[in-house]
Amino acid sequence: MKVFKRRAAASAGASREASLACRPARNPEVQETPLDSGELLLTYPVRVRPWFEALARRLGAPAAGVQTRRLQLDTLGTAAWQLLDGQRTVEAVVQAFGRKFQLHPREAEVSVTRFLKELGKRGLIGLKAPPGAVRTAEGRPPRT
C-alpha cells in the first residue's frame, strides 16, 4: 500500500529535490476577499476557450472573452496560500505549514504539494524553477 496514496513518479517528471526547490508565486490577477470565518475567497479570471466563444457568438450570446471564477479556501488552504510569497521555496512552505499545524513532515509535504498542484491547474500560481534545474526521473528500488 502506498502511503498517502502518492503515485509513482512519471518517467520524465522533475525530481523531488528540484520540485521542492521551486518558488511558488501567486498570480497577480487573483483577488483575495477575507471572509468572516477567517478563510479566503479567491476570485480569478479564466479565458474562455476560442471554440466555445465562437459557438456562443453564433448563438447570439454576448462576447465574453474572459470569465470570472471563485474559489473558497478552507482554513488549511488559507494558511498555505498566505505562505506563498514568491520568496519561499516549496520546501520552506512545507516546513512552515507543518510547524504551524504540528504535522508530520511527510504529511505536510503531501498536503502542500497536492494543494499547490490544484492551484497550478487553475492558474492561480506559477512555479519559478531554481537556476540550473535538471529534469530527471525519480528512481524506485527494483523488487526483490
Partner: peptide, 17 residues
C-alpha cells in the same frame, strides 16, 4: 519515513530516495 506500507512489508525512504 515509510514510503510504502504493507501487511508484512515496509519501504523506508530518506530525503534522497
Amino acid at each position: 519515513h515509510p514510503r510504502e506500507v504493507g501487511r508484512r512489508y515496509l519501504l523506508l525512504a530518506s530525503p534522497a530516495g
